[in-house]
Amino acid sequence: MTYEIILLGVAILVAVGILLHHPSKTLGIPSLLIFMGVGLGLGNGEFNFVYDNLALTSTVGAIALNIIVFVGGINTSTQSIKLAYKEGGMLATFGVLFTTVSLAALLHFILGWELITCLLFAAIVSSTDAAAVFSILESKKLKLKEQTDTVLEFESATNDPVALVMVTILTAIALAPTEVVSYSAISITLAQQIFVGIVFAYLIGKLAVYLLNHVKLEEYGLIPVFILASFIIAAYGSELLGGNILIASYVVGVVIGNGISRGGEVSKHFFNSLSWLAQSLMFIILGLQIFPQTLFNVFMVSLIPAALLMFVARPLAVQLCYLPFTQASWKKRMLISAIGLKGATPIVFALIPATAGVPGSIDIVHMVFFIVLFSILLQGAALEPLAKKFKLDQ
Score class of each variant (00 low, 15 high):
residue 172 A to Q: 15
residue 44 N to Q: 14
residue 192 Q to A: 09
residue 349 F to H: 11
residue 320 L to K: 07
residue 345 T to N: 06
residue 189 T to A: 12
residue 87 E to A: 10
residue 100 T to W: 09
residue 212 L to N: 03
residue 270 F to A: 05
residue 252 V to R: 03
residue 7 L to V: 10
residue 345 T to V: 15
residue 158 T to V: 13
residue 18 I to G: 02
residue 354 A to S: 07
residue 22 H to A: 14
residue 60 V to L: 11
residue 228 L to W: 15
residue 23 P to K: 06
residue 113 W to K: 14
residue 219 E to V: 11
residue 73 G to V: 07
residue 247 I to E: 02
residue 86 K to Q: 14
residue 123 A to Q: 06
residue 177 P to T: 02
residue 164 L to F: 15
residue 82 K to V: 14
residue 149 D to M: 11
residue 150 T to W: 07
residue 217 L to A: 03
residue 118 C to H: 08
residue 333 R to F: 05
residue 28 G to F: 02
residue 260 I to W: 02
residue 142 L to W: 02
residue 290 I to W: 02
residue 222 L to M: 14
residue 305 P to G: 06
residue 32 L to Y: 00
residue 171 T to E: 00
residue 57 T to Y: 04
residue 181 V to P: 10
residue 38 V to K: 07
residue 333 R to E: 08
residue 99 T to F: 05
residue 321 C to V: 01
residue 120 L to N: 06
residue 154 F to M: 00
residue 393 D to N: 14
residue 15 A to E: 01
residue 246 L to V: 10
residue 210 Y to L: 11
residue 277 L to R: 00
residue 339 I to V: 12
residue 31 S to R: 14
residue 301 V to G: 10
residue 83 L to V: 15
residue 219 E to K: 14
residue 152 L to R: 09
residue 310 M to K: 03
residue 33 L to P: 08
residue 125 V to D: 08
residue 1 M to V: 15
residue 300 M to R: 12
residue 194 I to C: 09
residue 13 L to I: 10
residue 348 V to L: 02
residue 96 V to Y: 00
residue 222 L to N: 14
residue 32 L to C: 06
residue 248 A to P: 00
residue 253 G to A: 00
residue 50 V to R: 14
residue 58 S to N: 13
residue 249 S to P: 00
residue 193 Q to M: 09
residue 303 L to F: 05
residue 364 I to S: 10
residue 286 L to W: 01
residue 340 G to K: 08
residue 147 Q to D: 13
residue 283 F to V: 03
residue 91 L to P: 09
residue 36 M to Q: 02
residue 362 I to S: 14
residue 2 T to V: 15
residue 287 G to I: 03
residue 95 G to P: 05
residue 15 A to Y: 03
residue 341 L to G: 03
residue 151 V to D: 11
residue 156 S to T: 07
residue 156 S to P: 07
residue 271 F to W: 05
residue 338 A to V: 10
residue 256 I to Y: 00
residue 122 A to F: 01
residue 167 V to K: 07
residue 253 G to I: 03
residue 151 V to Y: 06
residue 18 I to Y: 09
residue 174 A to C: 02
residue 376 I to F: 07
residue 332 K to S: 12
residue 126 S to G: 04
residue 222 L to S: 15
residue 385 P to R: 01
residue 148 T to S: 09
residue 296 F to W: 12
residue 61 G to C: 00
residue 349 F to R: 09
residue 351 L to Y: 08
residue 144 L to D: 04
residue 289 Q to A: 11
residue 315 P to I: 09
residue 241 L to M: 00
residue 50 V to H: 13
residue 329 S to L: 05
residue 45 G to S: 01
residue 5 I to T: 15
residue 16 V to A: 12
residue 341 L to K: 04
residue 150 T to K: 15
residue 141 K to A: 11
residue 379 Q to E: 03
residue 35 F to D: 04
residue 306 A to P: 06
residue 241 L to K: 00
residue 379 Q to Y: 05
residue 77 S to R: 08
residue 203 L to Y: 07
residue 381 A to T: 11
residue 254 V to F: 00
residue 161 P to H: 04
residue 20 L to T: 06
residue 192 Q to T: 14
residue 135 S to G: 13
residue 180 V to E: 15
residue 144 L to C: 04
residue 50 V to Y: 12
residue 389 K to I: 13
residue 364 I to A: 11
residue 84 A to P: 09
residue 239 E to H: 12
residue 320 L to P: 10
residue 166 M to G: 05
residue 137 L to S: 02
residue 307 A to N: 13
residue 291 F to P: 09
residue 60 V to I: 12
residue 105 A to P: 09
residue 132 A to I: 04
residue 67 I to V: 11
residue 150 T to Y: 13
residue 165 V to N: 12
residue 290 I to P: 01
